[in-house]
Nucleic acid binder design. Structure first.
Lengths: 221, 221
DNA sequence: TCGCCCTCGTGCACGATTTCACAAAGGCCC
DNA sequence: GGGCCTTTGTGAAATCGTGCACGAGGGCGA
């Protein structure tokens, strides 16, 4: 149905990778077909949502049977653009940047780290986990030479906006921001944020509100 | 107005830390009062949303003037439970766990790392960035001795659920999961997820769809 | 003290997302 | 080949979150 309509809700897009991971697990355990119910359980959502989400990709299920695991996996990979690797650059070779370069989770899942980039000349030329640090002035060249389309900001908050601008100038329009700062990018760019301390603060909120704090005056939950 | 009503929407809760950060910046630059408009700009949202969000905390603004920065900062810190530190444990002393222990961003923002915990005896006793690795069997003791209420899962996906259960058993009911796996926790626990590869996959989707199809769009902030 | 101006707090309409419920459709057994 | 059973795909309703528009209220100048 939603074949011509190329608009997939943002909330759905955010769940697709979770389904993808579940499907990969099913392939590993040699399961041939899967029902929306089973997939829902694996992905931690509800079955109706799974069916609606998958229907945005097309009608890939078989009524009375379920979804063919391999076929769905392939279609979803294609939709997510994961049929090939996407090299990334990490901006900032400090603590966080090094840690990210060191973290195998990116490369494993099709996002090899093409380069670390830093403004500090003393860092340039060093290597972390096989990834070389380049100077930020070389960013445009690196990006075009290596086909980098995704940039990861791992600088201090103060530098984040400037770095985002440099990425944009280098033609990189997908940005993942780890810096604890609000940054703006051009309309046509995509921006996602990961703020570690922010997540903890949210947990703190719920912790605070889950049980009556003897110190807090008055209010009940 | 919403004084008796203690229910703050999840979406609002997720924005409070962003406002908090903006307020901290304003304090640094010695700004005494701030309008919803200014705060909105700093937080990257719209002014009406700021006012609505803040109204859940109480009527802390002054019409015609704006919000008193220090007072609002205090009230918000209190609401978020950030008037004191929350020690955390990091489960898993592998690549990611070490990196997180090494990352100063937690301690700086009131979440000191009390301990690293691992199941591997050969890791126990080692120290990373001043944080000692303990055996997982000692988790309950560590948690109660040090008042740890928040656990961070930094293990491989396969171990994530078991570790979540161990945290729960140790009385820890706020969990931040970095492992690329869906885990379930008891009803009364809070769970937040950070999946690095998943974020990149989402970016990949929009990248994939921005190019061939001129009408597709990315996410904005 | 009076009145004007500015910005908050919020009712309301709208849009997005979730959930329900069920008809349609494919496979399988007899 | 027909009917039954299962599970999808999808309208429609319910819920949640957003943004607008405006009345209320407070400060400040005259």
């Amino acid at each position: 149905m939603a074949d011509r309509v190329r608009h997939i809700p943002e909330a759905t897009v955010a769940r697709l990778p979770v389904y993808l991971r579940s499907l990969a697990e099913l392939v590993d355990e040699k399961t041939a077909t899967v029902s929306s119910e089973r997939l829902a359980e694996m992905a931690g959502v509800n079955a109706a949502k799974v069916r609606k989400d998958l229907s945005y990709l097309g009608s890939y299920g078989t009524r009375g049977v379920g979804y063919d695991v391999e076929y769905l996996l392939f279609q979803m990979s294609r939709e997510l653009g994961l049929t090939h690797d996407w090299p990334v650059v990490i901006m900032g070779a400090g603590n966080l940047g090094q840690a990210l370069a060191n973290y195998g989770g990116f490369t494993d899942r099709g996002f090899p780290v093409a380069a670390l980039v830093d403004a500090d000349p003393s860092k340039v030329g060093q290597t972390f986990h096989g990834v070389e640090v380049h100077h930020v002035d070389d960013l445009p060249k690196i990006a075009s030479d290596r086909g980098v389309r995704i940039g990861i900001i791992a600088t201090p908050a103060a530098a984040a906006q400037a770095v985002a601008d440099q990425l944009t100038a280098a033609g990189i329009r997908s940005i993942l921001n780890f810096a604890p700062a609000v940054i703006t990018v051009p309309e046509e760019s995509s921006l996602r944020k990961v703020d570690l301390a922010l997540e903890l603060q949210i947990l703190s909120f719920y912790q605070q509100h889950s049980q009556p704090d003897p110190e807090a005056s008055g209010s009940r939950t």
